[in-house]
């Protein structure tokens, strides 16, 4: 029962841009303790759904609730402070900050020392930064990036930047973790390590949703999978069920499923 109440739910989410319907009244339930996959062809609306859930887009219709509480009308920053966190499909790191500093931003929402601690050498300011740094170092280490901590993003290959993006999302112990194509640009070994890390992150009160084109990853780590096409769900179920669904095979998996 507990598992169900801690879910992130959307009812009738409809989003359109200038008359073009991008999401056509979606009902979703992302449960805590599970890894949910969200797949679908390019332009299906996966990222747009994430944007609605995090508050970056305001859907024209529908309601979104987390753990029974409505999120409607809350700005992205307020949803972040409730532990709803995402990674970006297009890596969005600051080029001015080191890898470690970029990841430290992932815990910033849990800290509140005021401006006096910025400009004066106070103990509280020092301790806050030390704690943020320690958390970020740990997250980097979990993803095998400890050696890159002091590098600038421009000095790293795209696959590693992707992992930094994920480190920033997981570092603040989120309640809801929305990962947008976390394995894009990773090689096979990196993808395997990532799968292991994501599985080990899994906990009874974490809602994890993964948008991904890598079917091996989705099929092997997800408990449930939603399949999106042209802004509507065509299937939902366990990897086994989705794999055997005729519509899904036709639309998306194609020859992949031999």
């Amino acid at each position: 029962m507990d598992v169900v109440t801690n879910a992130l739910k959307g009812e009738g989410i409809a989003l359109s841009f200038g008359g073009i319907e991008v999401l056509k009244g979606l009902d979703v339930e992302f449960r805590a303790g599970e890894i949910t996959g969200l797949i679908g062809p390019n332009g299906a609306g996966k990222t747009s759904l994430f944007n609605c859930l995090t508050g970056a887009y305001a859907p024209q219709k529908g309601t979104i609730t987390y753990a029974g509480q409505s999120l409607d009308g809350l700005p992205p920053a307020a949803r972040a402070s409730r532990g709803i966190v995402r990674s970006f499909q297009h890596v969005a790191l600051s080029p001015d900050l080191t890898v470690l500093e970029n990841v430290m931003i992932g815990v910033a929402r849990n800290h509140h020392a005021g401006w006096q601690h910025v400009f004066l050498p106070t103990r509280r300011g020092r301790e806050e930064m030390a704690r943020m740094r320690a958390d970020a170092e740990q997250a980097l280490a979990e993803l095998g990036l400890a050696g890159a901590a002091d590098k600038l993003p421009a000095e790293l290959p795209p696959g590693m930047l992707r992992l930094v993006e994920i480190a920033r999302a997981i570092v603040g112990r989120p309640q809801v973790l929305l990962l947008d194509e976390p394995a894009a640009g990773l090689n096979n070994a990196e993808t395997r390590d990532l799968m292991r890390s994501l599985k080990s992150l899994c906990s009874p009160d974490l809602v994890m949703v993964v948008v991904e084109h890598d079917m091996d990853l989705v099929m092997s780590i997800c408990d449930r999978i939603y399949v999106l096409n042209f802004g509507a769900f065509v299937a939902c179920g366990t990897p086994q069920q989705v794999r055997q669904d005729e519509d899904v095979v036709r639309i998306y998996l194609g020859s992949d499923d031999d």
Binding site: A56, A77, A92
Partner: peptide
């Protein structure tokens, strides 16, 4: 750090609690 992220990627800053 938050200001520098907000400069480069306002949407990312928003998503991590920096309006």
């Amino acid at each position: 750090l938050q200001l520098l992220l907000a400069k480069a990627h306002p949407a990312a800053a928003d998503a991590f609690g920096t309006r």
